Amino acid sequence: MTCTETIQAYAFRSLGFGERLLPREGYDLCQQFTLIGSGLIWNVYFAVVTLALGFFLAIGLAMGKDSRHVWIRTPCDWFVFVFRGSPLFIQFFVAYQLLVLLPRDGITVPLGLFDLHIGTDWMTRAWAGAALVLFFNTAAYTAEIFLGALRSIPKGDLEAADAYGINGWSRFRRIRFPTMMRLAWPAYTNEAIFLFHATTLVFFSGFPAFQQRGDALYYASYFAGRTFNPFVPYPIVAFYFICLTLLLTWVFGRIGRRLNRHLPSNERARRKPRFLPQIIR
C-alpha cells in the first residue's frame, strides 16, 4: 500500500470512515503519521468543545464568586475548589465510576401528560463523559483567572461608569466584561494550551474508545506495542501537539491584540520599525 493509499484509507478512521481494521504489518512512517493525525481529531474536538462551553460557565462562576449573596457565592466557591483541588486523572476515574452506576436502559421522568425518557449509555463513552470532565475542569480554572481579572479592574473605570449613570447589565457589558477579558487573556491563553495537552489523559482514563476510534495517544500506543519502539510514535504525537500549540498561540495572540488595540503601547507595536544609524561621537 502506497502512502497515498494509506492516507485515503486511514485519514479519517478515528471518525469511522475508511478502513475498519488497524494495519497488521508494515508500520512505516506514513501509517504512523496518518493514524496518529487521525486520532488527533478527537483531541481537537475535546479542546474546542470544552473551551467553548467552559468559557461561558467560567464567566458565570466568576460572577458568582464575586457576588455579595452567600447563597450564590458558596456553591461557586465549592465547585471551583473541588475541581481545582483534585487531580484531573482522578476526576476522570470518579466520573466514569459514577456514570456507570446510571441505569443502562435510561431514566424515565414523569411529566404528567407524558413521560420523558433520557438515555444514559452514551454518557460512559469518551466523546461525552470525558468531555464533560474536561468541561468542568477548565471552567473551574478559568473562573479563577476571570475572577482575578474582575477584581483587578481599575476603580477609575467603575467610578467613571457611575458618573455617567451606567449600571446593571450595561455596566457589565460595556465596562467590566471587556476589561476583564483584556486583563485575563494572557493567563487564559496558557489555560487553553494546558487543556489541549490535558486531552491526552483521556487515553489513560476509564472512558473507552468506541470501536477502536481513539485519540492520538491511542494510536501511538498501538504502534509502540507492535514495533517495540516508542521513540517513533510518541515523538510524532509531540510534533503534532507542538504544531497545534503554535497555531493556538497565534490565534489567541491575534485575539489578544484585538482586545488591546486601543492601548497606546499596542499602537506603537503596530508601527513599522525605523532604521536608526548609530551615532559615533
Rank of each mutant, 00 (worst) to 15 (best):
A163L: 07
Y45P: 11
L22W: 13
R271Y: 04
R125M: 12
R151F: 09
F55V: 05
F228N: 13
N137V: 06
I7E: 00
I41Y: 07
T4M: 08
W169L: 15
V237T: 02
R73W: 07
V202L: 04
Y96P: 00
T138W: 01
A198R: 02
G148C: 04
P87A: 05
P87N: 04
V44F: 11
T249P: 00
I242K: 04
P110A: 13
A58H: 02
A47Y: 02
R151P: 05
S14Y: 02
I242S: 13
F231S: 07
R254Y: 06
F172L: 09
E25S: 11
R73A: 03
R151V: 09
I175C: 11
L248F: 03
E144P: 13
A95C: 08
G206E: 13
F275C: 00
L53T: 05
L259A: 11
T74N: 09
Y234I: 03
A220I: 02
L15W: 13
F33S: 05
S170I: 10
G165H: 09
G156K: 07
V100R: 13
N43S: 10
F210S: 10
A126E: 09
D28M: 07
F93D: 04
A143G: 10
P87F: 03
V94P: 01
G60D: 07
Y141Q: 10
L21F: 07
I193V: 15
Y141M: 03
T120P: 04
F93N: 05
A209Y: 14
S170G: 12
I166V: 15
S205Q: 00
L53M: 12
L150Y: 11
G106V: 06
M123T: 14
L195H: 07
Q32R: 02
Y218R: 03
K155G: 15
P87L: 02
T4S: 11
I242A: 14
F89A: 03
I166L: 15
P264H: 10
R68A: 05
A163N: 12
C243A: 15
L98Y: 10
F56K: 05
A62W: 06
S14K: 04
P233M: 13
T199H: 01
A161H: 00
F228P: 05
T227A: 01
A220K: 02
T50F: 00
G106P: 04
R213P: 01
E25D: 11
I236D: 12
G26C: 08
P186M: 08
L134E: 01
L111E: 05
